[in-house]
C-alpha cells in the first residue's frame, strides 16, 4: 500500500525524532515537510545535483532518493547540525570568507560534501577536492571559490588540530 504509515525513530543532528511517516517518503521530504528543516534543498529529486546532501553515518548522501524508513539507527546530520555552539563552523566560515557563496542554493550540499571529504582526507589535493565535489552541481561559481573554500577549511582545521 502506498499510504502505509510507519512509526520511526530518526537520529537527526543528535536528537531522536519520533515520527509517523508514509513508507514512501524520502528523507528530504521528512526533513523539509515534516520537520520544517529547510536548510537541506530540493534541487532535482533524481540523485543528480547534490543540493539535498546530508551526512548519514558520516557519508554524504543525497536525501532526495533515500526512503526515511531505512534510516533508523543511523546518525543523520544536516546543515542545521553543523553549527558550532550557534556559530558557523570552520567549513561554513571558510565558504563565507573565500567568497564561495553566490546564490547559495547549492551551498548546504557543498558544505556537507566538504565535511565528509575532509573527515576522510584532511589534506586533500586540488584534484581530490574536485573529485570529492563532483556530485554537487553549482551554476554560479564555476566551483573556483568553492575549491578555495575547501582548501581554506583544510588549512584551518588542520591548524587547529595540530
Amino acid at each position: 500500500m502506498d499510504n502505509e504509515i510507519l512509526f520511526v525513530e530518526l537520529n537527526i543532528n543528535g536528537e531522536l525524532k519520533y515520527l509517523h511517516i508514509n513508507k514512501k517518503w524520502t528523507l528530504l521530504h521528512v526533513l523539509r515537510e515534516v520537520l520544517n528543516m529547510t536548510g537541506t534543498k530540493y534541487g532535482c529529486g533524481t540523485n543528480d545535483c547534490g543540493a539535498c546532501r546530508v551526512l548519514i553515518n558520516g557519508e554524504a548522501k543525497n536525501s532526495c532518493v533515500i526512503p526515511a524508513k531505512n534510516l533508523e539507527g543511523k546518525e543523520i546530520i544536516t546543515i542545521e547540525g553543523l553549527q558550532d555552539n550557534g556559530s558557523l563552523n570552520t567549513i561554513q566560515k571558510s565558504f563565507v570568507d573565500a567568497g564561495a557563496i553566490q546564490c547559495g542554493f547549492c551551498t548546504p550540499g557543498m558544505i556537507i560534501s566538504t565535511s565528509a571529504l575532509l573527515k576522510k582526507n584532511p589534506r586533500p589535493s586540488e584534484n581530490e577536492i574536485r573529485e570529492g565535489l563532483k556530485d554537487n552541481l553549482c551554476r554560479c561559481t564555476g566551483y573556483v571559490k568553492i575549491v578555495e573554500a575547501v582548501k581554506l577549511s583544510s588549512v584551518r582545521l588542520e591548524g587547529s588540530i595540530g
Binding site: 523539509r32 520544517n36 529547510t38 536548510g39 537541506t40 534543498k41 530540493y42 544536516t78 546543515i79 542545521e80 553549527q83 558557523l88 561554513q92 566560515k93 565558504f95 563565507v96 570568507d97 567568497g99 557563496i101 553566490q102 547559495g104 542554493f105 551551498t107 548546504p108 558544505i111
Partner: peptide, 23 residues
C-alpha cells in the same frame, strides 16, 4: 574592496529562506 556577499553567512548556515522554504 573584497567584501564578501552580505547574504553568505545566512546561506552557509542553511538559514536563508528561499521561496520553497516559506510556510
Amino acid at each position: 574592496k573584497r567584501i564578501f556577499n552580505r547574504e553568505s553567512e545566512m546561506k552557509a548556515a542553511g538559514e536563508t529562506i528561499y521561496i520553497d522554504d516559506m510556510r
